[in-house]
Design a protein around this nucleic acid. Structure first.
Lengths: 335, 335
DNA sequence: CCTGTTTGACGAAACGTTTCGCGTCGCTAT
DNA sequence: ATAGCGACGCGAAACGTTTCGTCAAACAGG
């Protein structure tokens, strides 16, 4: 590999001058600039990111930490993120926390040691003093995605869950549903909390009393949803509609219904917050909110880059990206 | 951050000795070793991976390049890979080639500049002289996944596609199917070529003549499959079974059938090589091969680490991981 | 004409490691 | 005894950059 020294020798200048022309950090006469650029091209010089990294104390790499990349939502996020950053010359270190805060903090530490320029984190939001631990662990520009923290210390981008819940409840209400079951996630995870809060609020607004026994929490993994839906549907007075919060729940719900010999929308309407599931060609096609991942990624990248570049740090921002309701065939009207 | 110098000062030894105790690269007396380790703990020293990287010329990072992380198969691969490598202290740079060889080569270059210890690549396998270009571009231990190259210069891990095709054809044959449609991918992509070859071979073995008009190639994207399946099913003498090679095809096929008002398995049996799709709870539940991604990742990681560590480089190995047939309800017996 | 400022270029230090080569010590074999 | 050798430990160079401080020349204002 050609080094900066080779360029200097070739252009008959000092390495300082070469560095200055490349980075524009110091004035260089046009004549020399031309010679240097020519020399760079001739020897095929590419700056060594590692050496630069060591000297400057910061790299041109972004760290991405998600709970589980095999969740379609996260995979799409990773794809959009990687594209957004690679366009501006950054590359991406990647890790899964597997929803384990210890792993998460350990990955944060590793990434920090590698001097990432910034971090994109879908926080696990678990464990004691999580927020404080996170603040203490992170000393890099960071943007949180999907799950936000109370009185966040970090920039965040997340779905507009209150709006989403409103769309879902109003839609079901319009179809005549009153006995609506809601599968919430773990309490303390903002996306779940917000969706549940939005559900409650909109139910209130539409003057429908919530039947507490239909609100199940926490239902996080597929198997829990599988069990829960069967409990729900074997009640004396089962719900006419079920709201799922994410794809794991949706998969479990559908399997559970199948196991009872029930199907949607004939026996019960099913609707989901998570739009990443089979649509056309399978039945039922699930009516669901579609997250706007492209926008989420773009906003997150923008926020992060602003943090990385800015000297004067503004207050942490929380951006909420509105979802859209995709009406398909898993919900039917009831009398 | 504590540096190695701080440790040296604290333990009252030279930095050389500290380095030697940490890396075991030179003999150090037990007394000193103890002092050094104590000092390390006391000052909370963590070696700087960047500096080490610069000096040694190689990092402890693996680069992963896949065509599209949002494909469930790739997402699961990324997850398994990341886990496998993080367990042995490696971390992972990640990029999508978006099935564009130029992007792919550019990412290879970037990763090389970052001095990755090794590369895991799902090659795009496109473009002129692809194989030669790849060999020229890569100067790092590398393992190819899913798609292998003719007379490979690299270690490779891939599904046992011949076996998979055999399982599929025999299963369909047992159900009485003779008019079997096959959607192949782009020619030149080993996974597609092998699956098609296996299909032909097993059809031969079972003494069924292949109807050429039922073998469609290339059908790569979802929309192509959507169109193709409709052509197939509106033929005078339509197939009784359709074999899909990947999930994009399967999604297109299902949507196309839906558009014709047809469904599986009533109107036609559908079977797929790609096991990452909805199963329970939706209908139809697709009978398909399940790829063994965990094994694939493990083997790939093993091969790569062997390359990274070994001085004496053995011949490139091609490992084929057998899939398993998951029989569900998308195929039915015919007369 | 002198002083002060700006422009352009450079040598050398610094970033935090690993590694090369050398020196010292104590031991063994002549 | 002494040469030779292995085990230990150390100083300094090296990895490829960026940046600090210095300096010469050119140019401005009085």
């Amino acid at each position: 590999m050609a080094t900066i020294k080779d360029v200097a020798r070739r252009a008959n200048v000092s390495v300082t001058t070469v560095s200055a022309t490349i980075n524009g950090t110091a004035p260089v006469s046009d004549a020399l600039k031309a010679r240097v650029w020519a020399a760079i091209r001739e020897v095929g010089y590419q700056p060594d990111p590692i050496a630069r990294n060591l000297r400057k104390g910061v790299s041109t790499t972004i760290g991405l930490i998600v709970p589980d990349i095999s969740i379609p939502w996260a995979a799409h996020l990773a794809k959009s993120m990687q594209r957004a950053f690679s366009e501006i010359g950054y590359n991406m270190l990647f890790a899964s926390s597997e929803d384990d805060p210890e792993r998460e903090f350990s990955e944060i530490e590793v990434f920090s040691a590698h001097r990432v320029a910034g971090l994109v984190v879908v926080p696990t939001s678990r464990g004691e003093n999580y927020s404080a631990r996170l603040i203490e662990a992170i000393h890099v520009p960071t943007v949180l995605v999907d799950r936000v923290l109370p009185q966040s210390h970090f920039d965040s981008v997340t779905d507009d869950n209150l709006l989403g819940a409103q769309m879902i409840v109003r839609y079901l209400h319009k179809l005549g549903h009153r006995d609506i079951a809601f599968m919430a996630g773990r309490a303390g995870i903002s996306s779940s909390d917000e969706r549940l809060a939005g559900f409650r609020r909109t139910m209130d607004e539409t003057n429908v009393a919530i039947r507490d026994e239909l609100v199940r929490q926490p239902v996080y993994l597929r198997d829990q949803a599988y069990a829960t839906v069967q409990q729900l549907m074997t009640m004396r007075d089962p719900p006419t509609a079920i709201v799922c919060i994410n794809i794991a729940q949706l998969l479990g719900t559908m399997a559970g219904l199948g196991n009872l010999g029930l199907s949607a929308p004939e026996d019960v309407s099913v609707i989901s917050f998570d739009g990443f599931h089979p649509a056309e060609g399978w039945s039922p096609a699930i009516t669901s909110l579609k997250q706007d991942i492209a926008t989420t990624s773009t906003r997150a990248a923008e926020l992060l880059m602003a943090r990385i570049r800015e000297e004067n740090q503004p207050e942490p921002l929380v951006i909420r990206v509105p979802p859209s309701l995709q009406i398909r065939s898993s919900c039917r009207a009831v009398e």
